[in-house]
């Protein structure tokens, strides 16, 4: 399983390094969302700073959906998905590799958007470790749920529509927890231990569940 995961991960990373499709799409999209927020909500008012974590994760949820949509598109178009499902490899390994690749793309996007976000919204990161944990756990949560639903949506005629429709409601707990932990990292709240725990629980539950059900999704 792990060997399969590493091969799939390496393949996706190499494609991404060559094309930079997923990260650049998510990046441009998140910047657009932040700019539109600025005009729609006049973010320079001081009370808006408290809501900054929310803006960040909303931008990120939609940008993430955009790049997750592409996750299985290449395999579908080239027929490589069928080849993969026929190959004698563990589907859980395919899922793990894909999800890890997506988590890395999401984390890279976050790291690039973060400085812009700090500049645009004039926030200061008071707890750096909390921010790192929040980003890492949040990326895993989105990648695990998103990869599963992206693989499901790839089977339909309406891939672009169905991924957000399935993925966003299910990831509501992860989204709330991610916003609260980032808010804590920015010094807006005093404690967020419940939210860190919830994020960990969500990650464990959804990574396990996805590993278990992915064989059904991967079959042709």
């Amino acid at each position: 399983m792990l060997r399969t995961a590493v091969v799939v991960l390496w393949k996706d990373l190499r494609i991404e390094l060559r094309t930079r499709d997923a990260v650049s799409a998510a990046l441009v999209f998140s910047i657009l969302v932040l700019v539109i927020f600025n005009f729609a909500l006049d973010v320079n008012r001081p009370e808006m700073r408290r809501l900054a974590a929310g803006f960040f994760w909303v931008a990120f949820a939609f940008a993430g959906t955009l790049s997750l949509n592409r996750s299985f598109a290449l395999e579908k178009e080239s027929g490589a998905g069928r080849a993969l499902s026929l190959a004698p490899v563990d589907p859980a390994g395919i899922f793990l590799g894909k999800a890890l690749a997506n988590a890395i793309f999401l984390a890279v996007t976050q790291l690039v958007v973060l400085p812009l976000f700090v500049i645009f919204f004039d926030v200061s990161v008071t707890r750096l470790w909390a921010l790192a944990v929040s980003f890492a756990l949040g990326s895993i949560a989105f990648a695990a749920t998103g990869t599963l639903f992206s693989a499901i949506a790839a089977n339909t005629r309406m891939r672009e529509l169905l991924l957000p429709v399935l993925f966003l409601p299910v990831s509501v707990p992860a989204l709330i927890a991610a916003v609260e932990t980032t808010s804590f990292a920015l010094g807006n709240t005093e404690s967020a231990s419940f939210w860190f725990t919830l994020l960990v629980v969500y990650d464990v539950v959804f990574v396990t569940a996805s590993l278990l059900v992915f064989e059904y999704v991967a079959e042709e």
Partner: peptide, 9 residues
């Protein structure tokens, strides 16, 4: 199959 996966998760 796919609907069942969504029904469970």
């Amino acid at each position: 199959v796919l609907a069942a996966v969504v029904g469970v998760t």
